[in-house]
Nucleic acid binder design. Structure first.
Lengths: 162, 162
DNA sequence: CCCCCAATGATTATGATAATCAATTCCTTG
DNA sequence: CAAGGAATTGATTATCATAATCATTGGGGG
């Protein structure tokens, strides 16, 4: 699914710069951080820290493990990235400029598919109301087998019937 | 919220014994495993491996770390426990004999509140249908601040207004 | 232009969970 | 009932992702 992007007034880079330099303890916006933001927002996908590091190195961009982990946390705090709990390690995806959505995760090939459904927001509203809960965000992952893996797993006999 | 339990024909202990001893490679149902099942199903809550180990030790039940982790995995495979992704470590809750539900998690005190909403199942059904996806289960956690923490966080001025 | 403070990065630490493997336990068979 | 053998246990070690450390680097404000 290709979700429509959300109109934003600033580039991710500008928004991150603003986040870093504004506030009571201004932080620097460095070249490495700029490279990371540009690289991450040059294409939309779901990634973890290790994948990001090797992809950036493959693109001849200087990035150290420590700085990558540090900057990923800052990007989440800045509202540019969202953390995705997909098991033991942390995955990330665009938050800024991208609409709210949820995920189907294939347990065979690992693929992550996005979907949208307004009734989920409504369910959150109702549950929050009923419990005096102040919602801040959510994680909704449906595990299962994707179309391609379903076909691949089918015994030949059943394929013949199609 | 106290959810109604689901009628089951076997005790958790019997179900686990059946899971272990049935199949092409039968496994033993040992005393330690029996103690774990009984302890876990003697009360309903959300727990992680470390908490379970210290609580069982406090109850004078012999349990080693290795066996605890091993048996927790078997209990999930057997359909007795469900894994809860609530951050870096794995939490568990009853699956067998307990109805489908989802969770509100307080980011201040860590409390986990259960809720039910049939529209979530429907949303999963729709998304699966639209993507040729075979759903096997899901994890839905809403993060936020619970009623008690909201009150505690309120500035005194606002409390006076209540 | 220089100084100070924040960022960097190599390294080490941490924390949860999994793997190892010798010792033990307990079914099964004779 | 005894013995054999396979499975379980548990102390220990390994692994893996991520966080902390701290000496070094570097950039921006005065």
């Amino acid at each position: 699914m290709n979700l429509q992007s959300v109109a934003v007034s600033q580039s991710p880079e500008d928004k991150f710069r603003e986040y870093l330099t504004t506030g009571n303890k201004p932080q620097r916006f460095t070249g490495q951080q700029r490279d990371m933001v540009r690289f991450i927002f040059s294409h939309h996908d779901h990634f973890d820290a290790e994948a990001l590091i090797s992809e950036m190195q493959a693109a001849n961009l200087k990035i150290s493990r420590a700085t990558a982990y540090r900057t990923l946390n800052k990007l989440v705090d800045a509202g540019l990235l969202r953390r995705l709990e997909l098991g033991p390690r942390t995955f990330y995806e665009h938050d800024y400029g991208y609409p709210q959505h949820d995920h189907l995760q294939c347990t065979k090939c690992g693929k992550v598919i996005e979907f949208q459904n307004p009734s989920i927001e409504e369910a959150i509203r109702q549950a929050s109301l009923a419990n005096g809960f102040q919602s801040e965000g959510h994680s909704f992952v449906v595990r299962g087998v994707c179309k391609e893996c379903n076909i691949a797993l089918m015994p030949k006999r059943q394929l013949d019937l199609i």
